[in-house]
Design a protein around this nucleic acid. Sequence first.
DNA 1: GCAAGTCATATTTTCGAAAATAATGAAATT
DNA 2: AATTTCATTATTTTCGAAAATATGACTTGC
Lengths: 225, 225
Amino acid sequence: MTLAETAYDALRHDIVRGVLAPGKPLRMAQLSERYGMGFSPLREALNRLQAERLVTSIALRGFSVAPLSMAEMWDTINTRVLIEQRALRLAMAQGGDDWETGIVSALHSLTLQSTRAAEGGADEQKLLEDRHHGFHLALIAGCGSSWLLEFFQRLYAEAERYRYPMLQQRNVEHHRDIQAEHAALAKATLARDADMACDLLAEHYLRTARFIEAQMTAAPQVQSA
Amino acid sequence: MTLAETAYDALRHDIVRGVLAPGKPLRMAQLSERYGMGFSPLREALNRLQAERLVTSIALRGFSVAPLSMAEMWDTINTRVLIEQRALRLAMAQGGDDWETGIVSALHSLTLQSTRAAEGGADEQKLLEDRHHGFHLALIAGCGSSWLLEFFQRLYAEAERYRYPMLQQRNVEHHRDIQAEHAALAKATLARDADMACDLLAEHYLRTARFIEAQMTAAPQVQSA
DNA sequence: GCAAGTCATATTTTCGAAAATAATGAAATT
DNA sequence: AATTTCATTATTTTCGAAAATATGACTTGC
């Protein structure tokens, strides 16, 4: 892997997980020390991230982490539902054995990791996040549209930026059985009940969004600068 | 404007308009001479374009123009219809005076340029393309979703790659009154007839796609390199 | 006291060369 | 004859310094 790719992965991770706060200016000298490389690979990574809207830039004034806002969160969620509902319908219409198997196996490893992460540390939590991503990807992997899959990845990353502060608050009462939601979603999808699956998917995301909004309104960690 | 931005605009234009053929390898030394700058700004531009899928790259083997294929064209068109129908409905639900005025004025300048371009040269043709882009953007500008607008821009650029060979063939009989389609679309939109406008929009794009497919099947200019 | 200009410093942007890797082709081996 | 090995060349990738620009403190004039 080239240094530019390493920088891209590291920066993307640190932005999505909130290690680098929204709005924070990204100075070349700092980044160079932090990631142990020269300016060139860093600038390439930053340009890619800018195209993905995880980073903003102003000519001759450098880069900064893209800001967050409640309005943007709702736009992200709404667009996500649009994209994934379509992808889910396509996958249900076209998906074959490999697609079905992928869903079953992704749900299974998500469920396993879900119990493990309840007790475990940050590593187990991070693995749970990967499994969660894998499950939602598996649902639509059979859709056959590279555009829908790309947009899914973009919107998933953006949504994770909002969701991450929530994931760290263990003690908060969720009043949700998220694993049950995943299981029901997988069941409806495998039964090819398109309307049901789409409803469950939308509700799954909207619940999360409403919860985040409530938490943010109470103790705003998301700021536009 | 920085050199990197200049390189981005120039490369993007040359790829979208087919000046740089699909699949063509983009060698740094060539690009450096062609655009009159060093490697650094070029690499930044190429990384941005790679994130937009107009360029592909393999580590240590450089960049090349992203290939085209009929399957990708249909995916682009279908996704475009999904995105723009949603955006159009949102715009019709929320759009205010500025949005309406924007449509009227965009349609007007498109109509003017349409007659002018029929006789004029490449410059007039290029201006017509800009007006066409401006009209379709104006229709959905009031949607209030930055994600939908970004995806619109991405898909518009990709679709133009397929449409451009068609635009250069003057003598081909289209059997279409494209200006009438635009006028009807604007009329339905301004009347806030959402179902009608969405149908007209989809039909507008599908006609073009079918036409391109017919031409390509007859004399394939689109190849996966 | 305050605005406008000026200089020193900090930062981004770009270049040109060096380092690292891939591609090519000739010689050696099976 | 086909395959492998090795050196040569071509190309990408990265670095470190130079150029260009922004930032902030300081002075000057009002």
